[in-house]
């Protein structure tokens, strides 16, 4: 039961994170591949997001982190949200979802 709630919330959080755009690329952070992991525990109450930015030191980093946290809180039942920033592995355009790759005119290798 608890596992079902957690996985449902995970998907809801991923949807909510699509509202957060990378300001430079103008595309949502989920389909850009900037969100590495979303985990929800404790019956859908505690969210943990692991994400990165396109460039290390990007001036938008703090805003993207707090934006992801705020987006997670818009999901019903989420009581705590933690966002961890990582550059391991570093982001590459290969991590983009197919729709984003098409949007940016990136050809598959």
């Amino acid at each position: 039961m608890s596992g079902d709630a957690d996985s449902a919330s995970t998907e809801q959080i991923r949807d909510a994170l699509r509202r957060v755009i990378d300001p430079e690329l103008g595309y949502n952070i989920v389909d850009l591949g900037l969100v590495y992991d979303v985990t929800v525990r404790n019956d859908g109450r505690d969210a943990h997001i692991t994400m990165t930015t396109t460039t290390r030191g990007c001036p938008a980093t703090d805003y993207l982190q707090s934006g992801a946290r705020d987006a997670a809180f818009t999901v019903d039942g989420i009581g705590s949200a933690q966002v961890t920033l990582t550059y391991d592995p570093p982001w590459t355009p290969k991590l983009m979802a197919p729709a984003a790759r098409v949007h940016f005119g990136i050809k598959d290798e």
Binding site: L17, R19, V20, P23, E24, Y63, S66, G67, T74
Partner: peptide
């Protein structure tokens, strides 16, 4: 963009740069 829309990112739809 960062100054104006950064603080509300994730809370509301924002324009692109």
């Amino acid at each position: 963009w960062l100054e104006c829309y950064g603080p509300v990112l994730g809370k509301t739809p924002t324009p692109r740069v």
